[in-house]
Design a protein around this nucleic acid. Structure first.
Lengths: 386, 386
DNA sequence: CGTGTTACTTCCATGGTGAAAGAAAGAGAC
DNA sequence: GTCTCTTTCTTTCACCATGGAAGTAACACG
């Protein structure tokens, strides 16, 4: 590997936990950290000193609400220098590569998209290399690259199987590393999004957290104890066998009445096409459903009930503290949110803990950002954990 | 509290982890323990020495297969003295109290049942006190008492709400402690069974583990990271809103087609009664279904499909390493196991990791044993953790 | 009876830890 | 201004769990 010295590896376990806590949970004073990490004040002074000397952390002016007047010596928040390093995340789709540049805190500072005209691995790697070159010219602090791909990814490096790219066993990480000289992490796109939301997004600091994505397919991510649980079928057709309505529609993909048949964008478009002959976009279908056009309204209503049922099942069995609904296919909530809610409530125990559902209609740059987070994790944790 | 000195509390964290590992995972040599606990050999000598001196652990003759010849110095397994202490577990039902006496390893060494003729809290406590008296006479090493009750239990001490006993806010632990002078833990019966299976049963050593019980009602227990996840609705009608078949039967309990309506013993008996007018026992229904009698066969078949669906949903969303089906109502698997299996397979991804399903038709003594495990945990962990 | 192998013990340097005491930096009272 | 109070952070130090190295024990094998 041609990886630069790009790791917090020399940190002791204690130091790293401090660094991660500050990275993920914003500026924190040493006293805050004693509570969060359950360490003594003395230990915190010891742990933070080398981190500050190395420049990884800095003392920042107290940004707390200036109105609130507190007695005693003011606390001295510590923060990472988010701009000290930048990361590049790619989301590779069938015909486009979406790229984002982020800070150490996963804030997007630039975007860069390119059409993908070939699926030849070497040429795709060339394109990614070119795009990286452009970024390096603008951002000298580029530290690592993350790539999100739909399909099965092994060891965070090799695309084992990707139907839409027609790849199998392509060592994408190595190909891009050779062209850029930067450390590269490749991961399944859903897994990347889940990691990103767990570290910096909706699932930050949670113990049990679920991400459900709806788009061209269904994606599912389970986070327990702050770590993503890997699964054997790993995005090779999630939700095809989740039967939500045995009387549901039959579509080319998935079992009859499955989550895939009821909820994914291609299936919804297929249902409309089959019923009306019109080839409408997802947005058009939503608009017509909102306007009360019977056929679209019926399909969207059925989808909304399926989504409510699905979320209820997850809530009932996983007992997550939060569920994030993401992807382009959650737009139906804007139109049929009430149906989703009602169905969800009907399938849950009245005494069950209220469920925190967050909706985020993500675009491709959000997926790319997820991939960038993986590069951040590798820097922070040292090794690409699986 | 009138608790005797009954705790491993003075143990250091390292010592306790050694003690628990040996308690739960049978005799282990010091070298085994180095691997399991990731400690050095030196540390193990240090940690085990006081445990042996205090009598908590003993060196036992190597029970390993004597045929297998190994080189080098033979290992010296350590074990707890399972018989050094005994524990008493009660399962309180509407008309009976079932009691078991167990060793430190949760092996049942005696049983004691009594009819429950009153629901008056003081008199129930009197009965439990009497039964404890009998046991103390035979087992001088009695160390603690665990009580399992259907319903909502707070702080492992107070029965907050128990419909079938018509109790609310009964400080049962205190009542029994006053009469016995022994430490008492009270817990929801399902929670107790789950803890027992997690420590000493099917879920031993697993990270993600689910217990599903079927009997008079549905019980669900989720174990993540070796710890049971508490839930808000806590056995106040689990499964009433898990709709498994929207076209399913309507019964007095639960929503139409819910797990309760399809699977619990009262609901199955109700369906048969409503259809045929016969008031058959669950066993009779199973026998007639096995014999091919149409109506029972149809009901059991529908239940089997519901169970397969339910297990598949749990497997799909929780990704457990193992699912334990327990309770008296899992007997239908003997009759319609193939239907359960087929339905389960149909609702799972072909590439998903194979699921380990264990079935255990438990009786009331198994529930009582679960309660006894809680008393063991209190001794071992020092405090009743929630 | 030595040799090799594995299990366990003894001993010691190390390093992370918390407790206690002290220093720093503000607010508030007079 | 300045004295006190409060809270945050630092310094110092004793402690102790840990692992590593070297040594001992107990067996099989030739």
């Amino acid at each position: 590997m041609t990886t630069r010295a790009a790791s917090w590896q020399p940190l002791s376990p204690g130091e790293r936990s401090v660094a991660i806590e500050v990275l993920v949970h914003g500026p924190l004073s040493r006293t805050d950290l004693t509570r969060r990490l359950d360490l003594s004040a003395g230990s915190l002074t010891r742990l933070t000193k080398p981190l500050i000397e190395s420049g990884l952390l800095v003392e920042v002016p107290d940004g707390g609400s200036p109105a609130e007047v507190r007695q005693g010596r003011p606390s001295q928040p510590l923060d990472v220098v988010a701009e000290s390093r930048t990361f590049l995340g790619f989301k590779v789709t069938e015909d486009m590569v979406y790229g984002v540049v982020t800070t150490l805190r996963s804030e997007i500072v630039a975007r860069l998209d390119r059409p993908l005209t070939t699926h030849d691995p070497a040429q795709v790697a060339d394109l990614l290399g070119e795009m990286t070159g452009e970024i390096t010219a603008r951002f000298r602090t580029l530290t690592g690259i993350g790539i999100g791909v739909g399909g099965l990814v092994q060891d965070r490096a090799v695309v084992g199987e990707s139907p839409f790219l027609q790849w199998s066993d392509v060592p994408l990480a190595q190909l891009v590393e050779e062209r850029t000289g930067l450390p590269v992490v490749v991961e399944n796109d859903v897994a990347a999004l889940v990691e990103a939301e767990t570290w910096f997004g909706a699932g930050r600091g949670l113990d049990r957290f679920v991400v459900l994505t709806i788009g061209a397919g269904i994606g599912y991510g389970l986070v327990l104890g702050g770590k993503r649980v890997p699964y054997a079928e790993e995005d090779r057709g999630f939700g095809r066998h989740w039967i939500l309505n045995p009387n549901g529609p039959i579509t080319p993909a998935g079992q009859r009445g499955s989550a895939v048949s009821l909820l994914t964008i291609p299936s919804i478009r297929y249902q409309i096409r089959a019923a009306t002959g019109l080839d409408l976009t997802y947005e058009e279908i939503l608009a017509r459903a909102a306007a009360g056009e019977p056929m679209p309204a019926r399909v969207i209503d059925e989808a909304a009930r399926a989504l409510g049922t699905l979320v209820a099942q997850i809530a009932n069995f996983v007992l997550p503290q939060k569920i994030l609904l993401a992807g382009e296919g959650v737009g139906l909530i804007d139109v049929a949110g009430k149906t989703v809610d009602d169905t969800l409530r009907a399938h849950r125990h009245p005494l069950a803990a209220p469920l925190d559902v967050e909706t985020k209609v993500s675009d491709f740059h959000d997926w790319a950002r997820g991939a960038a987070v993986l590069a951040i994790q590798v820097l922070v944790l040292g090794v690409a954990e699986v």
